[in-house]
């Protein structure tokens, strides 16, 4: 599953680098552009491809491929992740080489750029047609809102909020995030990925989740439109 994802990602990267970097390079090579935007859209010298090649020009990610949305994540969160990739505390074969080429100022700039972008979300207007996905979302909503009282697993909402919007610098906004990405991360935590001090919370959480639980919560958060339409917040 992990290998498949890697192949999927590498293919996308190849295609993305070619098309985006080539087309954007001339159009956006404006020396007045803020550094973050430049790195995001056309890359940095020497040899740092643009983030947008994979994460998209709007920072929306490529959700079905498991490439996360960056738009609207907080700058401290993005910066922390880049630092983790650089130092190897967060392992990712794709991100580590890029992160190693960026200096802290560049990381800060690119983090601020993505944090400033408007957040694309699922509309939430139409429930998915797929029966199995609907079932997963229902099961996921129960896990997200209630946790598992039998095993003392706290609700996901207890830290990410009921609308999945995250809390300050503590927990990221995962409403409408890529389901494949969320699931990959949960599997990594479950496999005891160390990452950072706050990762201890996710490791503890992920240990309670079965593979089908992981699919379910991932599908649930991916479906959230982000606004406070969580149960109870509307009436």
């Amino acid at each position: 599953m992990k290998n498949q994802l890697k192949i999927r990602l590498l293919t996308l990267i190849g295609a993305g680098l070619l098309s985006l970097s080539l087309s954007l390079h001339s159009a956006l090579a404006n020396p007045d552009s803020p550094g973050g935007k430049k790195i995001a859209l056309i890359g940095a010298e020497p040899g740092i491809p643009s983030c947008s090649a994979c994460h998209g020009a709007t920072g929306a990610g490529q959700l079905s491929a498991g490439i996360p949305r960056l738009a609207g994540l907080t700058a401290p969160y993005i910066l922390a992740q880049l630092e983790h990739f650089r130092h190897g505390t967060r392992e990712n074969a794709l991100m580590t080489p890029f992160a190693k080429k960026l200096n802290t100022t560049q990381m800060q700039a690119v983090a601020e750029y993505y944090a400033s972008l408007p957040v694309p979300r699922p509309s939430g207007a139409n429930p998915p047609v797929d029966q199995q996905l609907r079932k997963q979302i229902t099961m996921g909503s129960s896990l997200a809102e209630n946790g598992l009282s039998q095993s003392a697993m706290p609700a996901c909402a207890a830290c990410h909020g009921e609308a999945g919007l995250g809390v300050g610098t503590f927990s990221p906004d995962i409403a409408g995030q890529s389901a494949a990405y969320i699931a990959d991360q949960l599997h990594e935590w479950k496999a005891n990925d160390r990452r950072d001090p706050l990762g201890a919370f996710m490791r503890a959480e992920a240990l309670h989740l079965s593979p089908s639980d992981i699919k379910a919560v991932a599908a649930y958060f991916a479906s959230l439109p982000g606004a406070s339409t969580a149960k109870g917040a509307t009436k």
């Binding site: 830290c159 909020g161 809390v167 503590f170 406070s228």
Partner: peptide, 19 residues
Amino acid sequence: AACHGATGQGQSSGGKVVF
């Protein structure tokens, strides 16, 4: 403090108190 805040004030998500 990471969740409840340095001054015990708690924290919100999207305007709703979480911690």
